[in-house]
Nucleic acid binder design. Sequence first.
DNA 1: ACGTAAGCGAGACGGTACGTCAGGTCTTAGG
DNA 2: CCTAAGACCTGACGTACCGTCTCGCTTACGT
Lengths: 197, 197, 197, 197
Amino acid sequence: MSDVAKSKPGRRASIGSRRNPQTEAAVLAAARQLLTERGYAGFSIDEVARRAGAGKQSIYRWWPTKADLFIAIYGIEKNAAIALPNHQDLTLDLTQYTSELWRFWRHNPGGRTFRALIAEAQASEAALRALRTKFLPERLDPVRTLFERAAERGEISADEVEDRVQLWVGFNWFRLLTGQIDDDAQVIARMTKYLVH
Amino acid sequence: MSDVAKSKPGRRASIGSRRNPQTEAAVLAAARQLLTERGYAGFSIDEVARRAGAGKQSIYRWWPTKADLFIAIYGIEKNAAIALPNHQDLTLDLTQYTSELWRFWRHNPGGRTFRALIAEAQASEAALRALRTKFLPERLDPVRTLFERAAERGEISADEVEDRVQLWVGFNWFRLLTGQIDDDAQVIARMTKYLVH
Amino acid sequence: MSDVAKSKPGRRASIGSRRNPQTEAAVLAAARQLLTERGYAGFSIDEVARRAGAGKQSIYRWWPTKADLFIAIYGIEKNAAIALPNHQDLTLDLTQYTSELWRFWRHNPGGRTFRALIAEAQASEAALRALRTKFLPERLDPVRTLFERAAERGEISADEVEDRVQLWVGFNWFRLLTGQIDDDAQVIARMTKYLVH
Amino acid sequence: MSDVAKSKPGRRASIGSRRNPQTEAAVLAAARQLLTERGYAGFSIDEVARRAGAGKQSIYRWWPTKADLFIAIYGIEKNAAIALPNHQDLTLDLTQYTSELWRFWRHNPGGRTFRALIAEAQASEAALRALRTKFLPERLDPVRTLFERAAERGEISADEVEDRVQLWVGFNWFRLLTGQIDDDAQVIARMTKYLVH
DNA sequence: ACGTAAGCGAGACGGTACGTCAGGTCTTAGG
DNA sequence: CCTAAGACCTGACGTACCGTCTCGCTTACGT
């Protein structure tokens, strides 16, 4: 990916009236790298374009807001990184999944991207909309699945799933946003107590 | 406030080798107003200075980062706005306090300021530090007090207070940051269930 | 100056948007006007940008220092303003040329620009360098030509041309910088005596 | 002097309703030092006050413009530095005096101060006035004396003194302002030719 | 087969904010 | 009345990004 991002010499011409996947890859790689290195404050479309060897317009064409870029980056990695456990036990599942999530967040691109996205959503109405429509539903899914399975097993009541999801997700956001996601399996396990009854 | 913020005519001179409280008031008023009108994205030190009729240096002198400004604004209002209930019942207390908090957040300056502060903390390490040291402790206090009183009454266990605080605060942040703080007393009441056992 | 204004007629090595000649003209006009009105002390890039309706970056892009701007302005006008006399007589030529030069200097933009450039060269090493390399050679040319023609006619010795040029130019600078360039043809004529032998 | 300029610890209190000579000395020393280190561009009243441990108001009270400060500094040193030669020969006198002048200018404070004063005079009408009334007459004196003595000896005509002074002074300014005052006794000697007939 | 339309990298453009610095004015507090 | 200190407002500094635009190409697709 970095080799793509640096393909300075031969410029990447248009491939006709359609999106060039090389350009897309180069932009996402550059954005990911920039976010990792400098975080939300140091992130700029100018610099992404510079690093990707892309025109700014090409970026704005496909990702109209920074939030779109953040969402694209996050999606790529998150799915690959975390598997959904299934121990037939809500506490175990929740603890394992959350531990892995925090580990993913601590690993630079993941957490930085998420934090950037949330920050951006506070700055721009469009970003907030993107967060709610394009990001949240998909991101809440894994946790919701864990609770749904538990409901099927009878561990919790089915009509409490959504509330429990929000409670748990909120806690995770709080820890991420305040910089408290050191891997502490004990803390996580202890906290699940309230969600499991 | 607006009369202070608009004191354009006679420029506000120094009152000697010490901080001028009029300047301080004008800056805070202007910052509050600007945040209300334009939110985090439209907030700039330049514009605050312009509206307050203050020099930028005067602002940087007393509030080195935007976070400091946000914290100052938030503190002024929050304390005045919300009383801590005491019905000798955790559910009642929590529901009432949280309802008022959401109402305060919905009312522009409050929520906007909080959201701006969290966003800023994701952009700047210094802001994150300010959030954790100057803001969080004081802001968590009211909720913690509610849980502590409940523990004293025997409603919950004393060593669970801190965890429950974080769970509840996290939920509130999540709703604020995703724009879901419409006053829905029923939702709040329903959610308290998990915190009250 | 012509190098600044030069727009390559043929094809360009690099693609990309082209310099907008209207912007260039607007900036130079604004700079000229500002210098005329307020002189060196009142001259600022901010104000030039404001008057030209240009972005500051556009100015810094093409004229990295104020000196570059001054040189560009001066060149445009000086060449148009003063013709080089040729009476086959050094005294006559020198007197006429100098009289016209002083008149040009007294007429606002000319003198103000020259004075600003010299002042700037005392403030910045880069400006001094620009003065010596981009400005002086071309500016000394007319006077040198007068002396060279005189040498060809045998009025003076050929190896004294450069010294005489400096002596004469120095005198002119002195008068300009101390505000003594009232048109006094007699004074000028009298002073030429020392340069003509 | 540097001990005066650095007298930070024990603050220099007022000595009552009159000028404090220690403050005056400290300010001049600080100004001289600052000019030496950073030149005209880096010279600011703020920094002088800081280094002198003086209030800005104290400086403005006694030296209303920067030019006044420059003139004060220059006067102190120039007189001490250069003796007026008297070899009963204009060429010799002029060559020696000018060589010493250039050496003095090359030695930091001298040249920097002079250049700063001339630059300032192009920026401010008041400074130009100060240059012409408080500075020039006194500074032209030594050179004028050389020419007057020559006139008394019959080397030159008495009514040409003033013109020759200006020609010579102009040449010297030109070399200083364009950064060409390397000690080249030969150049100076050669140039005197035109002033001596 | 060929014109058109979209995509591409480049980069100029008018704006605006950044955080710093200097200018001058003013007030206090202390001889 | 003078001095030191330093707060105050103004406004310039030079840099960086914003999002839009124009430019000269390149390619695929619909006619």
